[in-house]
């Protein structure tokens, strides 16, 4: 009785819960949801700007347009910092080099890739005059391959392979790389077109960000599979080629959709068609790559269960 009293008299706060290992799925920040939210907000902001400026004819003060344009260029970066980079701090095992990957890709794009494209490959000098098939091939083997190889090489030499702990690490770092490249593109666009109206800047920012993310998703799939599975040695090459091809195909299609059409009633520009195409492309590729990732992970879990069963 005395023993029982002694035990009961121990203050409740002194009892510690047994140490439980966190669920592996919760040790890392969730990438897909954050990426989706970031892009949805970006598309929403660009759509809002377009409705205000182009449809409702709300004209911001002229002095304010450059500031708002810079804000539009910085918006994807801010969203990513808030929803991805800061969220990493709350994760048990955060991804350490997201900002490093972003900065190195932006610098590489600005210092090497974009000057090389403009100075040597000069797609604007010869591709606009070509027919559709030649334009797709030309853009694939100029802008497409340079853009995706830059991202791939930055990822290969910054995070491979110790920082790839789970498959979605490849996605998180590829998104950082894509945003870095798109940021350099957007800044160059802003410098080259200081008088561009706000809706044009917004649509261009969305287009650059979405197209870079699409390519980066393929690169991430290649890196993740090469790291965690035993695919064909050509798998990374195929993903790189596919990413370049998607970029190469999208460039002429997008400009063809956005450019004004001539008809007997006059000339009509169609920026919303290009905007819709960009959205459909991004969310289509996102759904496809997400499905592939989940199918691969499910297959690995099934294989592990089969092995455990034996």
């Amino acid at each position: 009785m005395a023993v029982k009293d002694t035990i009961l008299s121990v203050p409740r706060q002194a009892l510690l819960d047994p140490i439980r290992e966190a669920d592996p799925a919760n040790r890392y920040r969730r990438v897909w949801s954050a990426l989706t939210v970031e892009v949805v907000i970006l598309f929403g902001a660009a759509g809002l700007v377009f409705i205000l400026v182009d449809i409702l004819r709300v004209a911001p003060p002229t002095a304010l347009v450059p500031v708002l344009s810079v804000g539009m260029v910085v918006l994807p970066l801010l969203l990513w910092l808030l929803l991805s980079v800061l969220a990493e701090r709350r994760a048990i095992e955060p991804r350490q080099r997201l900002i490093v990957v972003f900065v190195i890709t932006a610098l590489a794009a600005n210092a090497i890739t974009l000057p090389f494209i403009e100075g040597v490959l000069q797609p604007g000098r010869w591709l606009p005059l070509e027919d559709a098939i030649n334009r797709i091939i030309g853009y694939t083997f100029s802008i497409g391959i340079m853009q995706e190889t830059t991202k791939y090489l930055v990822l290969r030499y910054t995070i491979w392979q110790d920082l790839l702990r789970i498959r979605t690490d490849a996605v998180a770092y590829s998104v950082a790389s894509a945003l870095g490249y798109a940021f350099a593109l957007n800044i160059q666009f802003l410098i080259a077109n200081p008088g561009a109206s706000l809706d044009v800047v917004a649509l261009r920012v969305v287009e650059n960000v979405a197209l870079n993310l699409v390519g980066a998703l393929f690169i991430s799939l290649g890196l993740a599979e090469t790291r965690f599975s035993t695919p064909s040695p050509f798998f990374m090459t195929i993903m790189l080629a596919l990413a370049a091809f998607v970029v190469g195909t999208t460039q002429p299609l997008q400009s063809g959709l956005v450019n004004a059409i001539f008809s007997v009633r006059g000339v009509f520009d169609r920026p919303l068609v290009g905007f819709g195409f960009t959205a459909a492309l991004f969310f289509g590729v996102l759904a496809m790559v997400t499905f592939l990732y989940s199918a691969i992970e499910r297959r690995e879990r099934d294989l592990a269960k089969t092995k455990d069963g034996r």
């Binding site: 797609p123 010869w126 694939t140 391959i145 190889t149």
Partner: peptide
């Protein structure tokens, strides 16, 4: 990397 180099050469040749 080899594919990227070859693709780049193809791009320059096309240009």
């Amino acid at each position: 990397v080899f594919y990227a180099a070859i693709a780049l050469l193809i791009g320059i040749n096309l240009r």
